[in-house]
Design a protein around this nucleic acid. Structure first.
Length: 267
DNA sequence: ATGGTCGACTCTCGA
């Protein structure tokens, strides 16, 4: 029985602060999978009940105050693991990368390190992080597998994906080195699904809280991505940014990003 | 011009 598979990604910037937005959004959209980043909560305090009451299973890996990732699905969530598993995982890596298997699809939820400044050691670690991500795919998967890798990549892939690309050459989310690092992950076998359906510039998933009237002025970034392996991407039927939750009382600085596939999904 | 606002948590950091 062939069914559609829908997946979304959302940087919550605190799952507890955004719980009403998330549960309402899940009720309205009923996606097969929601990948959440920046949950900012320890596992012992994760609001499992809000998800179960909404009809969703949820897996998560978090820490106090920073980072944290979660995957929610109405289907069985299997083979859950966190970190790269490359023997170099720091505690922070464990709360930035969460993998699982849902109804025949491999889901990789990533919260890529921001990098602070191109001159900061954290930026070097960000570039290495993309290298480790590609190595993980080389080691554990095949480009023909149905894989969705989504999350807050903290990189705008191209000039169309940021409001003033000519001024962002030294920005940690647009520097040529970080875009090349992302491209190497794509080159392994991924397609940027949103771009299949939207060729125009100015489609953003992040608007900095500190920019007054950023949304109205179009001062944003497309740094949240849904990447699908080529064969799966060929079955994509839609992808869109949902600005609706940005109108809530306490919005995240990111939007929900959705992709839908016509796929022999067994969930 | 080099700002601004959030969230978590200790008074400051990270984004």
């Amino acid at each position: 029985m062939e069914k559609a598979f829908s997946i979304a990604t959302f940087n919550a910037n605190s799952i507890r602060a955004r719980l009403p937005i998330i549960t309402q959004w899940l009720i309205e959209h009923r996606v097969d999978c929601l990948c959440i980043q920046e949950t900012k909560v320890q596992d012992a305090d994760f609001p499992i009940q809000a998800f179960s009451e909404t009809g969703y299973n949820v897996v998560f890996k978090g820490q106090k105050a920073y980072n944290g990732v979660a995957v929610a699905s109405p289907h069985k969530i299997e083979n859950v693991s966190s970190g790269f598993g490359d023997g170099q995982d720091s505690p922070e890596d464990m709360t930035r990368l969460l993998r699982c298997y849902i109804g025949g699809i491999h889901v990789v939820n990533a919260y890529v390190p921001q990098g602070k400044a191109v001159t900061h050691p954290d930026f070097t670690r960000k570039l290495l992080w993309f290298g480790r991500l590609r190595s993980m795919f080389e080691r554990s998967y095949h480009p023909d597998d149905p894989i969705v890798c989504c999350g807050d990549m903290n990189v705008a892939p191209g000039a169309k994906d940021v409001y003033a690309p000519e001024r962002m050459g030294n920005h940690v989310c647009f520097h040529e080195d970080v875009r090349a690092a992302l491209q190497k992950v794509l080159d392994w076998g991924f397609v940027d699904v949103f771009r299949l359906f939207h060729k125009e510039e100015g489609q953003y998933t992040f608007f900095d809280y500190r920019m007054p009237d950023a949304i109205k002025k179009g001062l944003g970034w497309r740094i949240d991505l849904i990447l699908a392996t080529r064969r799966l991407a060929h079955e994509a039927v839609d992808s869109y940014i949902d600005m609706g939750p940005r109108k809530a009382a306490r919005p995240s600085d990111h939007t929900f990003l959705v992709a839908e596939f016509a796929y022999a999904f067994t969930g």
